[in-house]
Amino acid sequence: MVTGKSSKVGNSIAISILFVFSLVWMFPIFWTLLQSLRPYGDVLKFGSVSWPHHLNLHNYWTALVQSQMWRYFINSFEVAVPAVVITLFLASMVAFVVSRYSFKFNVALLMLFTAGNLLPPQLVFIPIFRLYIHVWVPNFINGDGVLYNTQLGLILIHVALQMGFATFVLSNYLKTIPKEISESALVDGASVWKHYYVVILPLLRPALASLGVLMTTWIYNDFFWSVALLSSGDKRPITAALSNLQGEFFTDYNLLAAGATLAFIPTLIVFFTLRKQFVSGLTLGSTKG
């Protein structure tokens, strides 16, 4: 009886703590939503901490149509989708080789890919910038003939930086798949390509799905590289373009709140439609590794 009562008390304490914390987490989102629905004039008249007198979707209209935010959404997808596809394709190949074939540099190769992850982007930014203004690309990709200020360059940097983590996760996942499957494929005379493409790749599907979700959100949310490697305003993804809503001297924070809300909607869609993969993605490779 006594223990049951105390666990009940413990439960309600835990719930009330969780409730308070969820409020703390919800508040900024709620505040952003509220501000995004208020016209600037309303805030100017009554102050930002006041009961709203007018609520409408005007800020969203301004952000999406007048500030042409929809264009930057397209830019974001043009970078994120190829970057995720290429990363997963290449990472699955590396993971396949390091987990299915034993050779001298096997572990060293895996370490190399993982170690690349540990370098903060701020550290490699200047060498990469220098590199990008000297790497030649054909004129139809960029009139200036260099990799700098191209979406291709942005895709490549994401692929390079995400490959390490993706390889690490995929090779760990592959280790949980019985080697016997591979052995029987080899016995049946499958070539390396067939072994990878017909046997391993379908087995990797759940891992690829979760990684794909994670990477899409990461690459979509990237701000640093899109500011560092693009100089044309019209090529920027949505995260960097949000600052278009900030003025030189004056910033309409209500408009900015609407823009920020719009910018996080795709992440929410991705999360809610692929929630199962998202959660399994976080625990991926944690059972063995």
Binding site: I133, Y148, V227, S231, G247, E248
Partner: peptide
């Protein structure tokens, strides 16, 4: 015309001018 938001333009000016301005 290549319009970049005012504050980013200012902060980026060094790399902008050394890149392909």
């Amino acid at each position: 015309l290549n319009i970049v938001d005012h504050n980013t333009f200012q902060n980026q000016i060094n790399s902008y001018l050394q890149g392909t301005p």
